[in-house]
Design a protein around this nucleic acid. Structure first.
Lengths: 222, 222
DNA sequence: ACCTGAACACCGTTCAAGT
DNA sequence: ACCTGAACACCGTTCAAGT
């Protein structure tokens, strides 16, 4: 119940949080995660973190090391917290496809966290749970060896592409360039409806499901 | 021939470059591009840029605006400089696939530049030339309207996913976790060769070509 | 119009020092 | 072992001032 920093006793300092006992690595990561989720990656700074903990900047260094170690620690948490991959359906095709859809939905739900993992180069680790389930279902569907390994990665690539494109569209809501600049009549000669479809945003989910369906059906050909 | 900064006349200051006339926006972007290619994004800083130009930091602000405007300007250059998309082959399938392969190769050749464009949220603009060519070939193959628009994006998604995954593998050369940690015998029960294939890095190009082939063949079904 | 110098408000990181 | 304070070497950006 005793404030650590500044004048003894009374509430003061930049949001001391619930600190009263000694600081721990876990506590630091907890608070870092809060900042990450509520304020975004840019605002997650060693100094802001220390301030929120009511602690000197250097205390962070003692407990978790520098900024890089901090982000790595957060990535571990994100990966661990990411819920299980759901498998639904009866026939192998449907079950495999459902994995891709489930993973995509999960990642789309927290795009900022995905961005952090991606920036730390740990996407592969993020996908490991999905990998396991995919291997199980693919072998159940009769695939094995190089075929199965390739199938796993092909599906994951599809998910990655879809999620990242989705995120790009999100960040760039209105087209920076008008359709008239992007498409000349020369590009789309005698098809006005095609131009319409090209300029209007298309359903990323529908697109993903289509590609996934084609891919899985071709992989699980029997 | 007169140095601008520091002591009049003689060579001094942090690499004045070839500046002697008045500074221009194009010159600033030129030098920024050099730094970007030779030293990487992290090293491209307003201050380093000013130093290399032999100019006060604030001069950059006058000519191109802040850091964001600088990066946006560079993105425009990158997009403009990116070579044409090559179309090869006879039949529609092969021609369409060749576009995807060509684009992928081009992007893989300069991963750092792609990263900058992606970070600025301008990936869509980067793909516009490929879009044009794809639309042309897809309509030639008999597709139109919503079908064609979806086909374009599906192929581009595939390229994005492949390029970004490739880049991840590049940044994470040795597995951070050993195969034994990632895969338990429980995951891959009675198939030792599958485990082999899962732990060894697979041929991203082969994988891409496979997915692309499946997708294109399914799109151009006649 | 074009550029400089100084200043501001930030970063991450290190290091000696305290208890 | 755990934490502080001060300092260092960076950032991007603004603003008054010079020519």
């Amino acid at each position: 119940m005793v404030a650590r920093k500044g004048q003894a006793g009374r509430a003061r300092g930049p949001r001391p949080g619930t600190r009263d006992a000694a600081l721990s690595r876990d506590q630091v990561l907890d608070t870092a995660f809060e900042i990450l989720e509520s304020e975004g990656v840019e605002r997650l700074t060693v100094r802001a973190l220390a301030a929120k903990l009511g602690v000197a900047v250097t205390a962070i260094y003692w407990h978790v090391g520098g900024k890089r170690a901090l982000l790595d620690g957060l990535v571990e948490r994100i990966i661990a917290q990411l819920g299980p991959v759901h498998v639904r359906g009866r026939d192998p095709d449907e079950r495999i496809m459902s994995i891709g859809r489930s993973l995509r939905q999960t990642l789309l739900r927290q795009p900022d966290l995905v961005a952090v993992v991606h920036r730390q180069g740990r996407t592969a680790a993020l996908f490991q749970p999905a990998r396991r389930v995919l291997v199980r279902e693919l072998t159940a569907a009769g695939l094995g060896g190089a075929e199965a390994a390739m199938a796993v990665q092909a599906i994951l690539n599809l998910v990655i592409g879809s999620v990242l494109v989705d995120r790009q569209l999100e960040r760039q809501p209105a087209q920076q360039q008008s359709p008239e600049e992007l498409w000349t009549p020369d590009d789309v000669p005698d098809a006005p409806d095609l131009l319409d479809h090209l300029t209007h945003p298309l359903d990323e989910e529908k697109l993903f499901n289509f590609s996934l369906g084609v891919l899985v059906q071709s992989l699980v050909r029997r």
